[in-house]
């Protein structure tokens, strides 16, 4: 839908018809978040602490993943009042989670005016076959991935940003590392294939050929890649960036720790200076108790969020 330029523009200003919800506007929004930290918050007060600590965005949810794990039961989209309360409390972007494949939760989040929708495996999936058609929305989506094929399938459905899944709510970075290394090494492998081999590669990745070719040429995803799931310390955040993440989501790691404001600011600093161990060391001093972690190899298969989504 482009406006034909048959009418001469005025000398002072032009006011062509605006286009909302374009791929450039959706993906471009994520580009603005790069180098930043997106923090899970459950109250307006926490959202303000996150903003004051330098977060680039907050994820509004009712329970952080660590509590979702503890409480069990079905985890759903958050209460609209709670999301609106957080939107009203801060000036930075506000994201919120819908269940995988839950079109209506996503529609509600769009109607509430959230800036990004996370179609998230941390909530209980609503559809065991299909993810939401993300092209149908003006609000951009971020989705989790454990490997390149999964990332490209989400992008094919319209995701404008990808994050590693990790294992949310564990305070254990091991799964985020596994997923980031997997995605990056699969991208690396694509870049050395010749044109003939890309068709078979697309078949193996179970992803559209056009996207596979785009990644092979560019050597990166066509959207921003963040890390999520298990980041608890400044060093964790810097590690994910050194492994190729363009920014990090921190879930339970901040507000389940002893001094959230201090830890949040420290993780922000370490994310920017991820390649400067001296600054990371300074940021890591005197942060108080980190969240108590969970060993992922003791997690039963049914409690692994990363295996949700397909």
């Amino acid at each position: 839908m482009s406006t034909p330029s048959t009418t001469p523009a005025s000398s002072e200003s032009s006011a062509a018809r605006p286009e909302t919800g374009t791929a450039r506007v959706k993906r471009g929004m994520a580009e603005q978040l790069k180098g930043g930290v997106i923090m899970d918050v459950v109250t307006p007060e926490q959202a303000k602490i996150a903003e004051d600590s330098g977060a680039v965005a907050v994820m509004a949810l009712e329970r952080v993943p660590a509590d979702i794990r503890k409480d069990g039961g079905v985890a759903r989209m958050s209460d609209p009042d709670m999301i609106e309360g957080i939107i009203g409390a801060v000036s930075i972007p506000v994201m919120a989670k819908s269940r995988i494949g839950h079109l209506v939760e996503a529609q509600v989040l769009q109607a509430l005016g959230v800036d990004y929708i996370d179609e998230s495996e941390v909530l209980t999936p609503a559809d065991e076959v299909n993810h939401s058609d993300k092209f149908a929305f003006t609000t951009p989506f971020v989705c989790g991935a454990t490997n390149l094929g999964e990332a490209l399938r989400r992008i094919a459905e319209g995701a404008a940003m990808i994050r590693s899944k990790g294992e949310a709510g564990t305070g254990n970075v091991v799964e985020a590392v596994r997923h980031m290394r997997q995605i990056r090494s699969e991208i690396g492998k694509l870049t050395v294939l010749d044109g003939n081999e890309l068709y078979a590669a697309a078949k193996e990745l179970r992803a559209p050929y056009e996207l596979v070719r785009e990644v092979a040429v560019a050597g990166k995803l066509p959207v921003v890649l963040f890390s999520a799931g298990g980041v608890a310390t400044p060093a964790d955040a810097a590690l994910m960036r050194q492994l190729g993440a363009e920014g990090v989501f921190v879930g339970s790691g901040i507000f389940k720790s002893g001094d959230p404001a201090k830890r949040a600011a420290a993780i922000v600093k370490a994310t920017t200076f991820y390649d400067d161990p001296k600054i990371i060391a300074d940021a890591s001093r005197g942060l108080g108790e980190a969240m108590v972690g969970i060993n992922c190899d003791t997690l039963p298969e049914t409690e692994r969020y990363a295996s949700r989504g397909w």
């Binding site: 406006t3 330029s5 005025s10 032009s14 062509a16 018809r17």
Partner: peptide, 20 residues
């Protein structure tokens, strides 16, 4: 506005020749 109001539009800019 917020992200849902984010948009693209052609803009004439003084000092930048060659169309909007």
């Amino acid at each position: 506005g917020r992200q849902n109001e984010s948009f693209e539009a052609a803009v004439e800019m003084a000092g930048v020749d060659g169309g909007p």
